[in-house]
Simulated scan of single mutants.
Amino acid sequence: MGKKKGKARDESTHDLQLSSSDLKSGNVYTSPPFRFIVEGTTFYIHAALVSQHSRPLDRMINGDMSETQKGYAVLEEDDQGAFGRFAEWVYKGYYTSGEVVDRSLDESTSEKSLVMDGECEKRMESPAEGLQPDEVVPVADEPPQAVFSWRNVEEPSDFGAVTSPRSLKTKRKMKEVSLTPRMQLKESFIQRKTVIRQENSSGPPPLPNQSPKEDYTDVFLSHARLYVFAEKYDVQTLKILALENLHASLAIYTLYEERTGDIVDLLRYVYANTSETVDDVEDLRTLLTLYMGYEMDTLMQDEDFRDLMVANGGPLLADFMRMVMKRI
Results as ranks from 00 to 15, higher is better:
Ser25Arg: 13
Tyr233Lys: 07
Glu257Thr: 13
Val264Asp: 01
Gly293Phe: 10
Lys193Val: 14
His14Tyr: 13
Val228Leu: 01
Arg182Cys: 03
Asp106Met: 06
Leu284Cys: 06
Glu244Met: 04
Pro156Gly: 02
Ser66Gly: 08
Lys186Asn: 05
Asp117Arg: 13
Lys173Asn: 05
Pro205Phe: 15
Arg35Gly: 01
Asn200Arg: 08
Lys186Ser: 03
Arg322Val: 15
Leu18Phe: 03
Ser20His: 07
Glu155Ser: 07
Ala251Phe: 06
Asp22Arg: 10
Gly71Cys: 06
His53Gln: 12
Leu241Asp: 01
Tyr91Ala: 02
Leu105Lys: 06
Thr42Ile: 15
Glu121His: 06
Glu258Gly: 02
Ser249Leu: 09
Thr68Arg: 08
Ala48Ile: 12
Met325Cys: 06
Leu185Met: 14
Phe189Gln: 02
Ala82Ser: 04
Lys92His: 08
Gln145Glu: 15
Thr180Phe: 05
His247Asp: 03
Asp141Trp: 12
Gln80His: 08
Phe320Arg: 00
Gly314Pro: 09
Glu155Phe: 12
Asp283Thr: 11
Asp64Arg: 07
Gly160Cys: 15
Met1Gln: 11
Pro144Ile: 14
Gln17Thr: 14
Asp15Arg: 15
Lys239Gln: 15
Val28Glu: 01
Ala242Asp: 04
Lys70Cys: 11
Gly26Arg: 05
Ala230Thr: 13
Gln236Cys: 09
Phe220Cys: 04
Lys175Ala: 10
